[in-house]
Computed example of a mutant assay.
Amino acid sequence: MEKLTSSVVAETKLDPTVAKAALGLVLGFLRDKDTTGNMQVMIAKMPRAQEAIDTAQYTGDGGVTQVIEGMTSFIGHGRADLNILAGQLEKLGISEAQTDALVRQVVNRAENIIGAEGAEKIKGILPALRQRTDLPTDLRHSA
């Protein structure tokens, strides 16, 4: 988790505490949306990742997320879940460009931990995030 946090901080210029909170939100979102188990494997292989997810979920937003989640349970999640995540990241002061960089770093780290095939499956979760934040089709960091 520290390596991922460091790479996010280097690319986004976010404060390390904010970067870790944002990563906790994004990793938790991806874990909850992943039906393959790849994110759970990735999280298990990153020391302190589960702690970051737990902390991000615990800090919450005064119950607003739970109310929205309750309302969306009638119509399905998907886009509403994504809007909740985007709102949480925005509340942390993270711009769309920083979100783009953060997600790119998560995908890069996924490739290192669970391999290219596993990372591709994780990227399959991201089309809706791409639409919400105008992320490029190729989320890999170009060197």
Rank of each mutant, 00 (worst) to 15 (best):
H77Y: 12
E90Q: 03
L89H: 12
G63Y: 01
F74A: 14
T99W: 02
Q105R: 15
M39F: 03
A44Y: 05
R104F: 00
L27N: 04
E51H: 03
S73W: 00
T59S: 15
A119D: 01
Q88T: 02
G60V: 04
V103P: 02
G76N: 01
A86K: 02
R79L: 01
L102P: 05
V64K: 08
M46L: 13
L27W: 09
V64C: 06
T59K: 15
L25D: 07
V107S: 06
E69Q: 09
K45M: 12
E69D: 11
L27R: 00
L23R: 04
G63C: 13
D81V: 01
G60A: 10
K91F: 05
L82T: 03
K91Q: 12
Q98G: 10
A101M: 08
G124M: 00
M71N: 06
I75G: 11
A52V: 06
Y58V: 04
D34V: 06
N38D: 14
K20T: 15
G115R: 12
A116D: 07
K45A: 13
D100W: 11
A116Q: 08
I113A: 00
S73L: 02
D32L: 03
I113L: 13
L82I: 13
I75T: 13
A44T: 14
A110E: 04
D61I: 01
G93N: 11
E117P: 03
D32T: 03
G118F: 12
D61Q: 08
A21R: 12
E117T: 13
K45F: 05
P47Y: 11
T55R: 13
G115H: 00
G60N: 03
N112Q: 15
A19L: 03
H77S: 15
D34E: 00
F74N: 05
V64M: 14
I53Q: 05
G24A: 01
V67D: 09
I113Y: 05
A49C: 00
A86F: 03
D100I: 02
M46G: 04
D100G: 04
I75A: 13
T99K: 07
G118C: 03
G115C: 04
E120W: 11
K20C: 07
G24K: 01
G62N: 09
L82P: 01
A97K: 08
N108A: 14
R48H: 11
S95Q: 02
T59W: 14
G87F: 01
M71Y: 10
L82F: 09
Q50S: 03
V106A: 12
K91R: 13
G62C: 08
D54T: 10
E111N: 10
H77G: 14
A44E: 07
L27T: 08
N38Q: 12
I114A: 12
K121R: 14
T55L: 12
M39C: 14
T35C: 05
R79N: 07
Q50R: 15
A22G: 12
